[in-house]
């Protein structure tokens, strides 16, 4: 990797000022993704602003509402008692990702900013609009087994690799950010982008803005939840397809429901129409099958990922069955 400046400020405002000094500066948190990208020559920062000394390491329970500091590690979130009791879906999703070693290093804020695992993004000799805008999409007519079936564009068909993001979108999280201008709050569903004409932009985070915390509002999803990740091996593999299901069931009736999928789009894929369909319905396998059909509306596959058109609904059905207790 290239040589770079390295600073480690102690204040959030100082970190933001420091990163703004240089057009090619990056925040460094757990480093589990950024350092890989630097080794591969995909990111070549002139300056790294290490934020690990910033006071963003708390998990807070604010009257049932959860606030997770941006520097809380994935392991700390997944193992947190309040999280496990009130938002078990989040624990399950985090534990489905990466490996214990990586989760010990990776941070909450960093996980939101994970870059795609598309092989064309990772190989600097290949075309990739996300890495070099205008260079073309290598995956469109290349090896696209892992790629999107929803919301892709002819510029990019990559998927967001995070498991945690899938749960966070289902849980209606909010992202708090600070920047050179005023601090702001972004609803999770608006945080990640679809590729459109600008796949180089993964998120709506503005230049020099720093994620400071994530909020998850109180919700009745402590029991009937499931995160199901289908992958090529039992751990340490990205999702072929994953499904996050949170149900609030009373008397066998679905009172409230949140659904999202991973491995299918450029952003964690929330299934709002399917949620509307399920609300008020009685728990049954037939209902889940109908729901899965609705979830798949608008899906489009490429040469190597046609299987996702079947795997995605099957995964959703199975996750619904498990969450509702129809199957164990």
């Amino acid at each position: 990797m290239n040589q770079f400046q390295y600073v480690r400020p102690a204040e959030t405002s100082g970190a933001i000022k420091s990163v703004a000094l240089d057009a090619n500066a990056h925040f460094l948190a757990g480093g589990t993704n950024l350092v890989d990208l630097m080794k591969m020559g995909i990111v070549t920062p002139e300056r790294l602003v290490d934020i690990n000394n910033l006071p963003l390491k708390k998990i807070e329970n604010i009257q049932g509402h959860l606030r997770i500091g941006a520097l809380v590690t994935n392991t700390q979130v997944a193992e947190n008692k309040f999280v496990k009791e009130n938002f078990p879906l989040l624990s399950m999703a985090i534990n489905a990702g990466a490996s214990p070693q990586l989760r010990n290093m990776a941070t909450t804020g960093g996980n939101l900013l994970q870059r795609t695992r598309c092989p064309y993004f990772f190989d600097t000799t290949m075309p990739c609009n996300k890495r070099v805008p205008g260079s073309g999409c290598g995956a469109l007519e290349g090896y696209n087994r892992m790629h999107a079936i929803f919301g892709a564009s002819d510029k990019c068909i990559a998927v967001n690799p995070s498991d945690m993001n899938v749960a966070l979108t289902a849980l209606n999280a909010f992202v708090h950010v600070s920047g050179p201008k005023a601090a702001r709050t972004i609803p999770f569903a608006d945080f990640h982008r679809l590729p459109g004409d600008h796949p180089e932009q993964d998120t709506t985070l503005q230049k020099n803005e720093l994620i400071t915390s994530i909020d998850i509002p109180t919700a009745p999803f402590s029991k009937n939840v499931h995160y199901l990740k289908v992958r090529d091996r039992s751990s340490y593999a990205f999702a072929l397809v994953s499904a996050a299901v949170a149900l609030h069931i009373e008397n066998n009736t679905i009172k409230d429901v949140r659904l999202a999928m991973g491995g299918v789009a450029h952003k964690p894929w929330r299934l709002t129409a399917t949620e509307t369909f399920l609300k008020g319905k009685t728990v049954s396998e037939d209902t889940f099958k109908q729901a899965a059909q609705i979830a798949m509306e608008g899906a489009k596959a490429y040469e190597h990922n046609k299987f996702k058109l079947k795997l995605a609904p099957n995964t959703l059905i199975q996750a619904l069955k498990t969450a509702s207790g129809l199957t164990v």
């Binding site: 695992r117 190989d123 000799t125 290598g138 007519e141 290349g142 090896y143 090529d232 990205f238």
Partner: peptide, 16 residues
Amino acid sequence: DDRFGRLVNGNFADYH
């Protein structure tokens, strides 16, 4: 990828 003659999964994350 036969268009380029290059491996697309030549690493321990993608070659399982």
